[in-house]
Design a protein around this nucleic acid. Structure first.
Lengths: 145, 145
DNA sequence: CTTCTAAATGAAAATGATTATCATTATCAT
DNA sequence: ATGATAATGATAATCATTTTCATTTAGAAG
């Protein structure tokens, strides 16, 4: 787990202490094949370290987000999931069946934004794009089951 | 306010009763230059009809959304704003200074989705696109103030 | 290896948005 | 006018997230 070491170094560089709960939370994030909700991280975390608290999960996620190590996925009901951040501006593709989340590049959105700016007079500063669908595994499950 | 009459007809067609709170809420939605949060509708509503309750605002919004008359705007913190829906699949452009919300067509997103489907193996069923920026008025305010 | 101090933790309570409950009220078909 | 029932509003419940605060602990300094 060099990735774990990398995150720990970044925390250290930013004056954070390396605690057991933080290690656990980071491991969970790095080993998960999909985005997780804070309560899911909490439940998984308690299996590895029963003393861990939900508040600590929230605080750690806040710190990790601050350092750009994780990013949020927005859900319909307003709650958030988190997953390790990827380089550059990426967008999420969320499987509505199993929650697996993939990223894709949206390089060619620039043209759309320019057009929107021209048509509306707005200056576009930020954007949010998330796709929802069915991942290959779940497509197969559906066929077979 | 023929738009108001139109909404009332749709409510009637769907077996809903036309009540004073509903009239008030619909008027507020149709007259607002920007998307509103439920509590904002509640506050505005109490000015016109002091007896109105926040719960009624939520229930009325739920009904109006069900009938396709309003649409939600997602916010960073997970809370929602609502505004009258427009025909077809539209996307929102939200002014981060004043909250004014404009819609734009995203017709050409189809090509992007096809490419993503090919690259990821996912089947894309739904999407969310929201842009954030500065509207023409707020760009000017910033220059002058 | 101890000591110290600020950072981090965890339990519990607070918050804020949204939803459920339920007795009362009001719409509208009859 | 009247009655069935949809809608309302006050209150309480939920659920995710944040705050508070006393206690613990990482890690720098001695």
């Amino acid at each position: 787990m060099e990735q774990l070491q990398h995150w720990i170094e970044i925390l250290e560089e930013n004056g954070c202490r390396i605690t057991s709960p933080r290690r656990v939370i980071i491991e969970i994030l790095l080993n998960s094949p999909r985005a997780l909700e804070p309560t899911e991280i909490y439940d998984l975390g308690r299996e590895m370290n029963p003393g861990i608290g939900l508040v600590t999960v929230y605080r750690t996620l806040e710190k990790l987000e601050e350092l750009g190590l994780i990013q949020r996925i927005h859900q319909e009901d307003g709650c958030h999931m988190v997953m390790p951040a990827v380089e550059g501006h990426q967008h999420y593709l969320v499987c509505t069946a199993c929650g697996k989340t993939t990223v894709f590049r949206g390089d060619d959105l620039g043209a759309l934004f320019s057009r929107v700016e021209t048509n509306t007079g707005y200056q576009v500063n930020d954007h949010w794009l998330q796709l929802f669908g069915t991942c290959p595994d779940c497509k197969n499950d559906h066929k077979n089951g």
